[in-house]
Structures are given as structure tokens and as C-alpha cells.
């Protein structure tokens, strides 16, 4: 059983990381008071931008193509998120409808462009990120094999971003302001904070993170753009809620969900797991999130002003 766990672990981590960074993006947006159910679409546009960039560059500069691709993914996510911010912050639009529009626009537009360019609607890349062992640490028994063997560089980058985000949100003035905008925007405004600007920045960060998440899916385990991220954006949203809008919470939630999904994906080839019905493994993140919501509804940690457009004129 332990042997099996060690085998699965690197895959579970690879699957968790895109979820984690996307969920973290959602954290920024929702902590500032803007619901972001467009995470799925933002991930997809990142996946598309990365696939497009890498497929163009991989012949001429194979060493750097992946990193330009990931940069493009983050930028594309940020750009699409700007549209969400414009609707939600400046135009006081309904944040849920805008999020749905983001998802649908992304799903339609990326496939449209891919088809116009390649004819088939799929974009494949030939190179991917290689797995590396961390020197010395991977020698540690058990833990070394589970955590430090065959890791992607992006895993460590994302974990670093998580740490930096925690520091930004809880130890710096900007983070305090951002959270204040999500809890009580009028008080934040009275204290001299530009609520509109903070929310714009938060939503754009969330787009960049989700876009990066999509890009990471491409360069680590998928290798192609085929018009969907298969609900991972919504799984990231579930993680955000299950993790109660906290960085450590979403780290645990995404890993929990990522691990379960990995087991579900590999259960058919591993006899020990074949008797766990796939339906349970696949649905339980969503069921758990619903149950968590039932229990936390009374003491919910959701930002208080979430979903409310901020209107300076209304007091």
C-alpha cells in the first residue's frame, strides 16, 4: 500500500498544482469582494495562449519556449479577467452573469481561433517540462520519493507564489486593504482606499493565476489544447470554498481533491484500487464542498461584501 502511495504521489502533486494556483487566483478576487466563477474560462484561455505560443516557438527556441508560453498564459488570463473586472467593478454588473459570460466566451473564442489557425481545433506541443529529482532531498527515504523525486519546476514556483501571496495578503498593507475591500468596502473607502483600483488589481491577479494554471496543465501533463479544461476551474472554485478562503485551507483542499481525482484516474490500472467505485472518487469533491457549506453556513468565512458591486454614491 505504501509502495502504491509513493507511486501515485508525484502524479497527485502534478494534478494538484494547476488547481492550487487557480484556486489561489480565486482567493485574490473573492477576498476583494468580486465573485469569480469565470476561473474555468480563465484557465482555458491560459491553456490556449500557452499552446499557441509554445507551438510557434518550440522549433526556434526550444529551451525558452515553455517559459514564454507560461508568461503568455498568465497575460491572457489577466487580459480576459480585465473584462470581468470592467463589468463587475466599473459597470456594477451582476458578477455571476459576467463570470458565466467569461466562461462561455473563453470556451467559444479559443476553439474558434484554434480552428481558424489549425483547422482541427486542437493545438499540440512537442516539448514538455521535464521531471527532475531535487539533489540530496530526493535521497531521503519515503518522503524523498514522494515529494522530491520527479518534480516539475512549476510545482516549486507555484508553492513559492502561494507563500508570497500569504505574505502579501496577511503581512503587507496592500493585503490588508484588499481584504478590507471584500469585508466592508465603504469603511475601506472612508479610510482612503481606492476600492475600484484594489478590486481591479485583485481580479487581474486572479486571471493571471488561473491563466498560469491552464498553462501548467499544458506543459506538465496534457501536452495539447483541445478546447476544454474539463471542469478543473470549477474544482478550483470548490477548493476555494472548501478551504474557507484561506491560503493554507486551499492548499489542503486542492491536494485533497487532486489526490482523489488522481486515484480515480488510475484506479482502473491498479488492482488495489479497482474496487473503489470511480463515481464516488469523482463526485466526492463536490459532495464534500456542499456538506462543508452546510456546516459552515452559520459561521461562514466568506468575505462579507462578496458579490456586491461597490457604488460610491450608495451609503
Amino acid at each position: 500500500m505504501l509502495e502504491l502511495l509513493i507511486q501515485i504521489f508525484p502524479y497527485a502533486i502534478a494534478f494538484t498544482i494547476p488547481l492550487l494556483i487557480t484556486s489561489l487566483g480565486g482567493l485574490f478576487s473573492e477576498r476583494s469582494g468580486v465573485i469569480n466563477i469565470g476561473l474555468e474560462g480563465l484557465m482555458l484561455v491560459g491553456l490556449f495562449a500557452a499552446a499557441l505560443t509554445i507551438s510557434q516557438l518550440e522549433r526556434t527556441m526550444p529551451g525558452q519556449a515553455i517559459w514564454w508560453g507560461l508568461l503568455a498564459a498568465a497575460l491572457a488570463g489577466a487580459l480576459l479577467a480585465l473584462l470581468h473586472a470592467f463589468a463587475c467593478v466599473t459597470l456594477h454588473a451582476n458578477q455571476i452573469i459576467s463570470g458565466i459570460a467569461i466562461n462561455m466566451t473563453s470556451a467559444a473564442l479559443t476553439v474558434y481561433l484554434a480552428r481558424a489557425m489549425t483547422g482541427s481545433g486542437n493545438i499540440q506541443i512537442m516539448i514538455g517540462l521535464s521531471r527532475r529529482n531535487i539533489p540530496f532531498l530526493s535521497e531521503i527515504p519515503i518522503i524523498g520519493k514522494m515529494l522530491f523525486s520527479g518534480t516539475y519546476l512549476t510545482t516549486w514556483i507555484v508553492l513559492f507564489i502561494l507563500l508570497a501571496s500569504w505574505f502579501l495578503l496577511y503581512r503587507m498593507v496592500f493585503g490588508l486593504r484588499l481584504r478590507a475591500c471584500g469585508e466592508h468596502p465603504h469603511a475601506a473607502d472612508a479610510a482612503g482606499i481606492n476600492v475600484y483600483l484594489v478590486r481591479y488589481i485583485a481580479v487581474i491577479i486572479s486571471g493571471a493565476c488561473a491563466g498560469l494554471g491552464g498553462g501548467i496543465i499544458l506543459v506538465t501533463y496534457s501536452g495539447e489544447f483541445n478546447g476544454t479544461v474539463a471542469g478543473l476551474g470549477f474544482l478550483a472554485l470548490a477548493s476555494l470554498i472548501f478551504g474557507q478562503w484561506r491560503p493554507l485551507g486551499i492548499l489542503l483542499a486542492t491536494f485533497f481533491f487532486g489526490f482523489a481525482s488522481t486515484i480515480a484516474n488510475v484506479s482502473q490500472v491498479i488492482p488495489e484500487l479497482a474496487n473503489i467505485p470511480g463515481i464516488i472518487l469523482k463526485t466526492f469533491p463536490y459532495v464534500f464542498t456542499l456538506i462543508a457549506l452546510v456546516f459552515s453556513a452559520k459561521s461562514s468565512q466568506a468575505p462579507k461584501a462578496i458579490g456586491e458591486p461597490y457604488d460610491k454614491g450608495k451609503r
Partner: peptide
């Protein structure tokens, strides 16, 4: 590409919002 229809619908949602 046929996805033009979905793009138009998504845009309409955005403008309706």
C-alpha cells in the same frame, strides 16, 4: 469556424450583464 455562434451568444450574455 462554427464556434462563431457560441461566441456571439457569450458576447450577448456579457452585454446583457
Amino acid at each position: 469556424p462554427p464556434e462563431i455562434a457560441d461566441t456571439i451568444i457569450a458576447t450577448i450574455i456579457y452585454f446583457a450583464a
